[in-house]
Amino acid sequence: MPSEYSLSDVLERMYQNQLALEAALMELTLQVEAQGHAEVGDNVRGALYTIGENAGHIKQGLARLKTLP
């Protein structure tokens, strides 16, 4: 049984935190845009795009790390 503080477990939790922060930022973005701040919304969406692009890479890296002996 792997340690609860194994590298893959820690990275998995960081990844989950990233997804949670992404969801929270999107919720706030929707509120900001509803208040008429489209430019701010666009800026945040740009950052969210980067987070989304990196999420797939991180997930693949985690899957590979978990298969290592």
Results as ranks from 00 to 15, higher is better:
4 E>L: 08
15 Y>Q: 04
65 L>H: 03
23 A>H: 09
56 G>P: 02
65 L>M: 03
29 T>Y: 04
10 V>L: 12
33 E>G: 00
31 Q>D: 08
45 R>Y: 07
26 M>A: 11
4 E>H: 09
56 G>C: 03
67 T>F: 03
44 V>A: 05
61 G>F: 14
40 V>I: 13
18 Q>M: 15
32 V>I: 05
62 L>D: 02
16 Q>R: 06
36 G>Y: 02
6 S>C: 12
48 L>V: 07
9 D>N: 12
52 G>S: 02
65 L>R: 05
54 N>I: 01
63 A>I: 13
25 L>M: 10
13 R>W: 10
27 E>M: 06
55 A>R: 06
2 P>W: 05
48 L>R: 03
36 G>V: 00
24 A>V: 10
9 D>L: 10
58 I>D: 11
60 Q>M: 10
19 L>H: 15
60 Q>S: 15
30 L>Q: 09
15 Y>A: 08
50 T>C: 13
12 E>I: 03
7 L>I: 06
40 V>T: 05
11 L>T: 02
46 G>F: 13
64 R>T: 03
47 A>V: 11
46 G>E: 09
63 A>T: 10
69 P>V: 01
28 L>C: 15
28 L>Q: 14
1 M>S: 13
4 E>W: 11
38 A>C: 10
39 E>T: 07
48 L>I: 05
1 M>Y: 09
13 R>P: 15
16 Q>D: 02
30 L>A: 08
46 G>P: 03
68 L>Y: 14
63 A>G: 02
47 A>L: 14
1 M>V: 13
55 A>F: 05
3 S>Q: 10
68 L>R: 13
34 A>W: 01
5 Y>R: 12
32 V>L: 05
37 H>W: 06
32 V>W: 13
66 K>I: 11
42 D>K: 15
8 S>I: 08
8 S>V: 06
57 H>S: 12
42 D>A: 07
19 L>W: 09
52 G>F: 06
46 G>I: 00
34 A>L: 07
36 G>D: 00
3 S>Y: 13
7 L>R: 14
41 G>D: 01
41 G>C: 01
32 V>C: 02
66 K>P: 13
6 S>F: 15
16 Q>T: 05
49 Y>L: 11
22 E>V: 02
21 L>G: 00
18 Q>H: 13
11 L>P: 01
33 E>W: 01
17 N>L: 03
1 M>R: 10
20 A>T: 11
60 Q>T: 04
38 A>W: 10
15 Y>W: 12
54 N>F: 08
32 V>S: 03
22 E>S: 12
34 A>G: 12
35 Q>T: 01
43 N>D: 11
49 Y>E: 13
54 N>G: 05
36 G>L: 00
46 G>V: 01
51 I>L: 11
22 E>F: 12
50 T>L: 12
43 N>T: 09
58 I>A: 06
43 N>V: 09
69 P>H: 07
52 G>Q: 11
34 A>K: 04
63 A>V: 13
46 G>S: 08
36 G>N: 00
3 S>W: 04
16 Q>P: 02
51 I>F: 11
21 L>Q: 14
38 A>N: 15
65 L>D: 04
64 R>M: 14
20 A>H: 15
27 E>G: 06
14 M>Y: 07
